[in-house]
């Protein structure tokens, strides 16, 4: 089945990147690099798992009943909320970490620390 294969591929990619993000959370040495792994990979992975659900919903809307279409539309709105809020939250955590005195480990340059921001 063509559609089923597409859904399996989407779900597989999503699970792979979500796992990579969680694994990077354990493996990286400091809070900024952990944010790199956690934000990028889990956002990308969640986009793909949700795309799997959206394709599933639209396909069964066509075949079975309209309630699957409602499922797909709501999944799309949830995905939109996730994609807009996730990088903003990461930015807030990074800024709070730097202001509360957690500096990057093994950094070759830190312009913000030597910079002219007084506040």
């Amino acid at each position: 089945m063509m559609i089923d294969t597409i859904i399996y591929i989407f779900l597989g990619i999503g699970v792979f990147f979500n796992g990579l993000g969680s694994f990077g959370l354990i493996r990286f040495p400091d809070v900024y690099t952990r944010l790199h792994a956690a934000t990028k990979c889990t956002t990308f992975g969640s986009i793909f798992t949700s795309l799997g659900v959206i394709v599933y919903g639209f396909y069964h809307w066509h075949v079975d009943s309209a309630s699957y279409g409602v499922l797909a539309i709501h999944a799309f709105i949830a995905l939109l909320a996730l994609v807009i809020t996730n990088p903003t939250g990461a930015h807030a955590i990074a800024r709070a970490a730097h202001r509360s005195g957690v500096y990057p480990k093994r950094a070759v340059v830190d312009k913000l620390r030597e910079g002219d921001l007084s506040d």
């Binding site: 990147f17 990579l20 993000g21 694994f23 990077g24 493996r27 990286f28 040495p29 400091d30 900024y32 690099t33 790199h36 792994a37 990028k40 990979c41 730097h98 990057p104 480990k105 093994r106 950094a107 070759v108 340059v109 830190d110 312009k111 913000l112 620390r113």
Partner: peptide
């Protein structure tokens, strides 16, 4: 990021 998670090769800075 996948490459860096697996190899652990980073060179960070701001």
């Amino acid at each position: 990021v996948a490459y860096r998670v697996i190899t652990g090769r980073i060179n960070p800075g701001i």
